[in-house]
Nucleic acid binder design. Sequence first.
DNA 1: AATTTCTTCAACCGCGGCAGC
DNA 2: GGCTGCCGCGGTTGAAGAAAT
Length: 556
Amino acid sequence: MSRTTNESEDVVLSKYQSESPLVDESNGGNLGGVVLKKGPWTSAEDAILMEYVKKHGEGNWNAVQKHSGLFRCGKSCRLRWANHLRPNLKKGAFTADEERMIIELHAKMGNKWARMAAHLPGRTDNEIKNYWNTRIKRRQRAGLPLYPPDLCLQALQENHQSQTNGGINVGDRGHHDPLQANSYEIPDVIFNGLKGNNDVLPYVSELPDISASNMLIKGLGSSQYYSFLPPTVHHQKRLRESTDLFPNSGVSVRNGFPMFDQFQNDACDKVVRSFGLSFPHDLDPNKSLLPFDATQGSHSLSNGNSSASKPTSGAVKLELPSLQYPDTDLGSWGSSPPPPLLESVDAFIQSPPVSAFESDCPSARNSGLLDALLHESNALGSGKHHSAEKSSNSSSVTPGAMVDDCALNICETEWEDCREPISSLSHSATSLFNECISASGSSVDEPPVAETLARSTVKLEPVESDLIPDKQKESTQQLASIRPDALLGLDWLEQSSGCVKEQAIMTDAITTLLGDDTATDYKQMASGSSTSSQGWGFGSCAWNNMPAVCQMSDHP
DNA sequence: AATTTCTTCAACCGCGGCAGC
DNA sequence: GGCTGCCGCGGTTGAAGAAAT
């Protein structure tokens, strides 16, 4: 849609110069006393610009104003040309193919709109960007994952198979074939990308060779706590939104995602994307490395204070969060409440780093949380004769080793902050979990799951396990692996607090909120997938070993 | 029918990279 | 090496239209 204004066609440009409020009087907008116009382009201006480009070709945009009499800055001209006047521009809605392409490309590249546009002839970066943002917003509002739930389930099954066959190969990447990989194993290269994306995840900068991906990324990439969640019956509004999104879809959401068929054989993609985390591939598909890219699902995630603190309702406006996270102030780290780790993860999810294969990653900033942790670890470790050295020199450290050996002890004061029940950690985790739940089909009309869960988690009310139906107990055990607090490695806190039974509350809440059917589904799926706590605990495991700002301290 | 709210997208802004001087 | 100007990119804004109330 071009919003070229039609006003008095043959614009008397001088009119704008003198009268229009849409003049750029800012620096650079006033070239030699000429006030440049801003705002919507008129068709006359378009004509002038087109004429100019015909004569002089593209480029040298700043000369446009001089030579054509167009009172627009070069930037504006370039933009207008590139987005609207350029020949061969495709107008109209994106085709299914294009949509699929965008999704794929975004998974690979993150928010590299221009690069994505290069793969979509006739489309502009702006169009793609707008499309993506709109899509994210829509799906976010709908509480839907970017990717169809059934793919999550399938991925889960496949993952289970792979786990059954090969077990979890945590930390041993030496003989790792990425293509055959455990879907959750994210190579360290991801963190190389992270290091380059300080705005997004500043806390991992300058990480030594610790396999941070083991700590963090697996948790995010892990889908157990998401994909096992039952398929859903969307409530009306959400259903409408999803059908809006995927016009071809019937009741089944799956049908609305024809474009994902090609991902069917890529469990990794499915798992990750189902969770709303898209891991950009190496541009070389053969490598199939998975630089961390998490895009969708990011709003609940990224908005650390959204879901948990407010009832989830249709009225809740889920805005795209600003990515402008304040710079980390390590100086105040020790005293400032909750380490913004998950928020940074949230931000990270929102604006995934580009593949580490891209060379344009800026250098890391030595201001990372994990960096700080490591630093402290080293300090403490040297005192305690812990093998911090080991961790810092190892390029592949198992999560367990991380905890056992790394000595990344957080001082108690820091942990005190973490314990704050309504910390951003719990918020984020709850948001995350809420995302999972809602994506699984709970509707906005349903009780606010996350809030309920959060309350459960926060209150730590003891519940007699005897009061919990067996089925729920089952679920409880399963759920223990997927609870947001578990994901955050908070298990030990509860245990140390004598609140183990609180898990039951979670299950109770889940069962209540999801309803019997879905709860049953969930239980079936859980039991069908694995009875091994390790299998189900993978996500938990990952999260338990995650940055564990929370965990690394005095864990017994 | 009027008003409000939401969605979309064109355009702007600021920043960084690069080249030329 | 520093400065300047140009270009391109990605994030954000705000007007216009659509949908909901």
